[in-house]
């Protein structure tokens, strides 16, 4: 199952970044290839994404759904199309004057086009993830390079970062638990 991870810092507080990524229409301005978006409800949107393979475009209709969220710390979303499912985990963390965004994309090709979807994601995901990071950093301004140069992981030949994923999952769980047991109002 192809995976990619992006970690970068933008020059905005977590709440501002959260409002942006939580709004499907604004978020999609930063996702490469999105041609059309129809918001279905607060947690669901239908997207049409065009990905060119050489000169030939592949046009994919997806339904994106936020499965769980912990404002303004993170969310888990799923995007499903006929031949693929993409799990997306986003975590926001205050970092100096900005916010570090960690996004983990996990794509699973399905059915008869599985081989093509997996191959295509392997080829394109690093580039598209970098474009996503670049768009957000352009919009909000990147934090100083010394703090947070964008980092991308995964891809052909990359060792799976199981320990890192478990650590991140524990961090998310910890934040959720902390959120449940910490009086609101901060």
């Amino acid at each position: 199952m192809p995976q990619r991870e992006a970690r970068f810092t933008v020059n905005a507080p977590p709440e501002e970044l959260w409002r942006f990524i939580r709004d499907f229409e604004s978020l999609c301005t930063c996702i490469p290839g999105v041609e059309r978006i129809t918001v279905v409800d607060e947690r669901t949107a239908d997207l049409t994404v065009r990905e060119k393979v050489g000169v030939v475009p592949l046009i994919v209709d997806l339904r994106a759904q936020i499965d769980s969220e912990d404002a303004p710390h993170g969310l888990h979303a799923t995007a499903k199309a006929e031949h693929l499912t993409m799990a997306i985990d986003v975590t926001l963390q205050a970092n100096g004057s900005g916010t570090e965004l960690l996004a983990l994309f996990d794509v699973k090709g399905e059915g008869q086009l599985k081989a093509i979807v997996d191959r295509l994601f392997e080829r394109r995901a690093t580039e598209r993830t970098a474009q996503f990071a670049d768009s957000l950093q352009q919009r909000f301004g990147a934090a100083a390079a010394r703090d947070a140069p964008a980092q991308f992981r995964g891809g052909p030949g990359a060792a799976r970062d199981r320990v890192g994923r478990i650590t991140r999952w524990l961090n998310r769980l910890w934040r959720r638990l902390r959120g449940q047991f910490t009086p609101s109002g901060k």
Partner: peptide
């Protein structure tokens, strides 16, 4: 430029499915 990636992304994976 137009088709090499398409071939690589489709033809070859489809041999192995």
């Amino acid at each position: 430029a137009d088709y090499a990636e398409f071939i690589d992304s489709t033809y070859l994976p489809l041999m192995y499915s």
